[in-house]
Each structure stands twice: as structure tokens, then as C-alpha cells.
């Protein structure tokens, strides 16, 4: 812990970073995102098992961007997000310093996208056993049953857009749900409006989702959105190869066409 706090203090004091995006203690014994701008406040930074948020979402928030260069406490999900954002030209080399807390209490500091690429590992078990069971169950359903399953799940949606707000990859300055001439997606949280939103959200993340699970964690009505993304990622990887968030330069499936792309997904 002190290693992280020392590193944060050094960065803020030297002016190398204007803000450290990390975690602090939260309500009911939990942790919450914390932005430290004042070197005398680095003592509020914590890092342990409670620190689950994908902090990379803050890198593109205008309010945070306007503070100046950020340093960010880098979990694997954060590192993957940074690389994916870089591959989409949203983050440039040396735009952000990643601080990786190490098991021995020390901190590894990553300055460049290349260093982040070296530190990122391929995500393996991103689902809890419970989520994996749920996914297996969905996979065993018929097409019609699967449709009904998701209709049922989406029927709870409030259209609060917490899934969008918490997702580092949902950075469009004008989201399609907010385009009203023409109105592509109905605004009300009725079955059509909810289905419209969730299909667009899932498809727009195809090949870009780093599987951090933040969308599902943010959802106040517990819609397992990450499962949907998980399946799509698997499908995209099988069809087009690659995995989001492992390289700062890779192009992703939705933005790329090659003549040897498989088209077996067209059924």
C-alpha cells in the first residue's frame, strides 16, 4: 500500500501527473473509485480485493481529462482497456501512467503503451463459476428459448444507462440512443426500446469488449450483460481472430475488412 501511495505522491509532487485515478475506502466496507489531486491526500489510496471497478472509464471523461495527465492504478482490466482505447486512437502513447501494485507492496510504473503491452496478460477466467454455469445453461437452450431468456432479462431494464456509463469502451460523444432525427432506438423502457438498446450496445462492443464485467456490475437490476459480451467476444475471436485489449495497434473486427475474412457466421 505505501508503495502505491509513495508513487502517487511522487507523481503529483513532481507534476508528472495531475491526478491519480485509484481506489479509496467506500460505503459499507467496500471500495470506490478515488481521484487524488493533492499529494497530501495520497494516504486515502487503497488497493486490495475490494477494488474491482474498471477505472479506465475515467480516462475519457471530460471532467477528468480537463485536470491534466493522469496516472491510473492498473488492474489487468484497466491495462486491457488502455490498449483497446489506444488501438481506437482514443489514448496516445504516454497519455497515461499506469501504476501496478505488486504482491510485495511495491509498485511497477508503466509509462508507455509498449510497456503496458508487455504487462498485460490474456484474460482467462473472467467469469465466476456462477456466471459460467449461467452461460452454459443459456448455450444449451434453443434459439427461441435464448431469445425469451434475454427478453425476460431486458424487461427489467430501466434505461438508466449505467452499463454505458461504466464501460470504458462506450465513449461516443453522441450515443446512437440519443440521436433523434431519425430516432433509431425508441426512448421508453418498453420491450422494443430495451431490446433495441441492448442489441446495439452488445453489437457495438463486438471485438472491442475487454470483458471486465463492469456493465453487469453497474446494472442496478442485475442484468448479466457481460455474458452477452462474453459470447460475442468468443464468436469474434473464432471468426476473425484477435482479442480486444492485448495490443495498442491491432485493428478490431468491426473496423477491418480482409478478403480472407470468414463468412460462416452468415446463416
Amino acid at each position: 500500500m505505501t508503495g502505491l501511495q509513495d508513487a502517487a505522491r511522487d507523481l503529483l509532487q513532481s507534476g508528472e501527473a495531475a491526478v491519480v485515478i485509484g481506489f479509496g475506502g467506500g460505503s459499507a466496507g467496500g471500495a470506490r473509485p478515488l481521484m487524488v489531486r493533492d499529494p497530501t491526500s495520497v494516504g486515502d489510496l487503497i488497493f486490495d480485493d475490494r477494488c474491482v471497478h474498471n477505472l479506465a472509464v475515467y480516462l475519457l471523461k471530460p471532467e477528468v481529462k480537463s485536470l491534466g495527465k493522469p496516472a491510473i492504478v492498473g488492474t489487468q482490466a484497466v491495462l486491457r482497456s488502455i490498449l483497446q482505447l489506444a488501438s481506437e486512437q482514443q489514448v496516445k502513447d504516454r497519455d497515461v501512467i499506469a501504476l501496478i501494485p505488486e504482491a510485495d507492496g511495491g509498485v511497477r510504473r508503466l509509462e508507455t503503451l509498449g510497456e503496458i503491452e508487455g504487462a498485460v496478460s490474456k484474460p482467462d477466467a473472467v467469469l465466476s463459476p456462477e456466471e459460467q454455469n449461467c452461460l452454459d445453461e443459456i448455450a444449451s437452450l434453443s434459439r427461441e428459448e435464448r431469445w425469451r431468456f434475454w427478453q425476460e432479462e431486458f424487461s427489467r431494464c430501466l434505461k438508466c444507462y449505467a452499463c454505458r456509463a461504466a464501460c470504458p469502451m462506450c465513449y461516443c460523444s453522441q450515443c446512437i440512443v440519443e440521436v433523434n432525427q431519425p430516432q433509431w432506438i425508441p426512448v421508453p423502457a418498453h420491450p422494443l426500446g430495451n431490446m433495441g438498446w441492448h442489441l446495439v450496445r452488445a453489437m457495438h462492443l463486438a471485438g472491442r469488449c475487454v470483458n471486465c464485467g463492469e456493465c453487469a456490475r453497474a446494472c442496478p437490476v442485475d442484468i448479466p450483460l457481460n455474458l452477452l459480451n462474453q459470447v460475442i467476444e468468443k464468436e469474434v475471436a473464432e471468426q476473425f481472430g484477435g482479442k480486444a485489449g492485448l495490443s495498442a495497434t491491432a485493428s478490431y473486427a468491426l473496423s477491418t475488412f480482409t478478403t480472407d475474412d470468414k463468412d460462416t457466421f452468415i446463416r
Partner: peptide, 14 residues
């Protein structure tokens, strides 16, 4: 107070 706020509507909708 608001730097970490994500600007979603969860608070208002519950």
C-alpha cells in the same frame, strides 16, 4: 464530490 460520478441515471431511477 462528483469527479467519480459516471453520469448515469441509476440513482434517479431507483
Amino acid at each position: 464530490q462528483s469527479l467519480r460520478c459516471l453520469g448515469c441515471g441509476a440513482c434517479a431511477y431507483v
